[in-house]
Design a protein around this nucleic acid. Structure first.
Lengths: 224, 224
DNA sequence: GTCTATAAAATGATAGAC
DNA sequence: GTCTATCATTTTATAGAC
């Protein structure tokens, strides 16, 4: 997680609303609002995402929302942070891990593809939020944090061994490439809605990723 | 372009504003408004994109905008259609085409990568619009049209020969895969802002795409 | 076809009671 | 900490003069 270290210290200043971590109940409400925003975003999209709608979706009055978040912007960034924090648990669930790295890559891609197919609005919402962060001056680091979280996640699933510096590097390279493919397939599969084409694309992606991993491992072996 | 045929007849009803194609000057103003919206979107993002800002950016009064477009929604969809229509000319410019299909794939990816690096806001704007179309009920076909345009474009650049049905199929498969990679790299390169990582990713993408094309051609040869 | 003026509704945010 | 009530703008959209 070395790449995300720099970002971490900033989040507290950029994202939180008024009460740092006050009461137990207060924190629960804060979380409810974030979840409410997430749901409102998922089934209405960015354009329809107003603070009133969020408050309603969270079962809270508009003023309460503003008690916890200075502005709509700070709330949206908090939602993205929440998404990043949840990523791990949301994904790890249904991936069964084979022993061989190449087979893991394949299993990961297949699991992601299943997930993508049944969470269309969630994926679109997440991409909208990422673009929002990329647009919001001073918050680009959040987008970076999100991508690093995914890359670390994929990389770590490919090589559980955490001690070998070189394997970590390879894991991240493969992770980046997998994420590229997955982001690409998200947009294309929703746009084209051509299941047989997408399935063909997934198989091609798997072959490509296996090849990439094999190549990196071969280079590593040769370099010794 | 067979895949986009169905979509084409719909655009007239879904996208246009009031005056069908009236006067010469009228059309020019319509175009100015669309360009204005494009620019406003590029340097402000979806969240800041209001009809007032668009009108100002187009050098037109708000009422004039509404004379040409019934609603903000119809204008945004017209902008996306404009982007689709322009794609061809915007891209074809700086791609020098080698004779061999595999080399063309490589040249295309490199050209796209150069383009991506110098048009950040344009790419983000386009992705925001695509997501908007995917969100707007009844306009998903526009996103499909956009993707098919890109796929046809890439496919046609890989195989100029238009008569061989099988080559067209392969061209489209390669085009889809290239587009997946390019969309993925757009998001990741802007989020991570790690040029050396992105360059590594581009090289991996090129190798993968060459391999994919080679594989498809080998299958074709074997099937005879 | 383009403008000025304005309507009607919605939006982000705050004041202050409880 | 959560609410009711309200402010100050902003937003999309229209009416009607020119």
């Amino acid at each position: 997680m070395s790449e995300t270290a720099e970002a971490t210290h900033k989040e507290t200043t950029a994202t939180r609303g008024r009460p740092a971590g006050a009461t137990r109940k207060g924190l629960e409400t804060r979380v409810r609002i974030i979840k409410g925003a997430r749901e409102a975003l998922e089934d209405g999209g960015m354009e329809a995402l107003t603070t009133r709608r969020i408050a309603a979706s969270a079962g809270v009055k508009l003023a309460t929302l503003h008690y916890y978040f200075d502005s709509k912007e700070s709330l949206l960034l908090a939602v993205l942070e929440d998404l990043i924090a949840d990523m791990d648990s949301a994904y790890r669930a249904d991936v069964a891990l084979p022993p061989e790295p190449e087979d893991r890559v394949e299993a990961l891609i297949r699991a992601s593809w299943r997930y993508i197919q049944r969470t269309r609005n969630k994926q679109i919402a997440q991409t909208e939020l990422t673009l929002y962060a990329l647009r919001t001056r001073g918050s680009e680091w959040l987008a970076a944090k999100q991508y690093n979280a995914y890359i670390d996640f994929y990389g770590h699933l490919v090589f559980e061994d955490d001690s070998d510096e070189e394997l970590r590097r390879i894991g991240r390279a493969v992770g980046r490439q997998m994420l590229i493919g997955i982001d690409g397939i998200i947009l294309q599969s929703y746009a084209l809605e051509d299941l047989s084409a997408s399935n063909e694309d997934i198989e091609a992606l798997i072959i490509a990723m296996r090849g990439y991993l094999r190549r990196l491992m071969a280079e590593r072996a040769k370099a010794r």
